[in-house]
Amino acid sequence: MSTASAYGLLGAVLVGLGLYGVVLQAEPLRRILAFNLLGGGIFLLFGVMARRGAGAGFSGDPVPQAIVITGIVVAFAATALAVHLLLRLQVARDVPAPPEEPRA
């Protein structure tokens, strides 16, 4: 088995671990953490495809590599959005909503 395939299996294991965490963790912050573990595994699978496509003097196919760079940054943006929603939710729970005005 080639080194790339071994890392491909690692990616598969990480996806499974992350998925287990996303489904079963109780705390939302831990779910976000598990979502990032899962993402790392998926990116790794892309990296394995890139590595197997090495050729033309490059150490890997640059197209999947570039897509993964994009993916890591987008995953961060999604994580930031989720984390700040969580923080906002806590503030919203602390401040009870004002009573609704009766509608005419």
């Binding site: 890392y7 090495a54 590599q65 760079i69 890591i72």
Partner: peptide
């Protein structure tokens, strides 16, 4: 190890 230093830096 997968020959992707650009991704390594981003990660």
């Amino acid at each position: 190890r997968l020959g992707a230093p650009d991704v390594a830096l981003t990660e």
